[in-house]
Design a protein around this nucleic acid. Structure first.
Lengths: 121, 121
DNA sequence: GGAACCTTACCACGCCTCTGTCAGGGTTGT
DNA sequence: ACAACCCTGACAGAGGCGTGGTAAGGTTCC
């Protein structure tokens, strides 16, 4: 044994043992195990637990948020998809000749939908 | 008026009017308003709504996740705090002479805590 | 001026997150 | 061998998210 058990780690970090297991289930802090499946918290894990607590306290964020950030880290396609959406301009796309044309097109579409819903014979 | 009303926008994007208002409350899609507070969805907002739907469908993601990503965008200190935590090494910090010393220190700390909890006279 | 639309503000429901607690069974240390 | 610890799995409850509905009141169009 070269590390703390879950209750010892809980006592020194301020997390409850339940939460340490929960954090492991989210993939945020994953301690190694002994041969008989006891969790072993080394200095690295303890540091990570303490700084995680600081992070959650200082910023207004939740565990699941950090989990999502980690997920974006490991899935580049997800990251590029999200950032692509965020970076997309709010301005209208070019290629439609005139705003008035576009507007008429969309409003007609709306009326077609209403017609479908209403007087479908 | 040079844009669609909320019901028209809902019909062409597939979102419900309720959800368009909800998305505005999360800050993800914020249409401008008329003088009498009607929401006006222009081509840009419609595009954004459709691509948001694509994003949520294609990736395994929730609205609040996108909201969090946007929040990290606009708050650089939050972003650096989260990424700093994610990038922190799992390895023990240097500076402690010996792992055995550290271990003894932490375990002693544990016992002090137990003593406080148990036999506080 | 009335129908059809828009606004905000609530209530409600199902699901998920976070957190605690407990039961049944295996492991460690003295 | 016995206390004290660890494991998993389950139930439970507070609170937030995503979504729908509905009511009371202003706006727009014919």
């Amino acid at each position: 044994m070269d590390g703390l058990t879950i209750n010892q780690a809980a006592a020194t970090t301020g997390w409850s043992p339940r939460m340490l297991r929960y954090l492991e289930s989210t993939g945020l802090v994953t301690p190694p195990r002994t041969a008989s499946d006891y969790r072993i918290y080394g200095p690295g894990e303890l540091q990570r637990l303490r700084t995680l607590r600081n992070l959650l306290d200082s910023q207004e964020i939740e565990i699941s948020d950090v989990g999502f950030a980690q997920r974006m880290r490991s899935q580049p396609d997800l990251q590029s998809a999200v950032e692509g959406w965020l970076d997309a301009p709010i301005a209208p796309p070019e290629g439609v000749a005139d705003t008035a044309d576009w507007l008429r097109f969309e409003q007609d579409k709306h009326e077609r939908l209403l017609a479908l819903a209403g007087g479908a014979s």
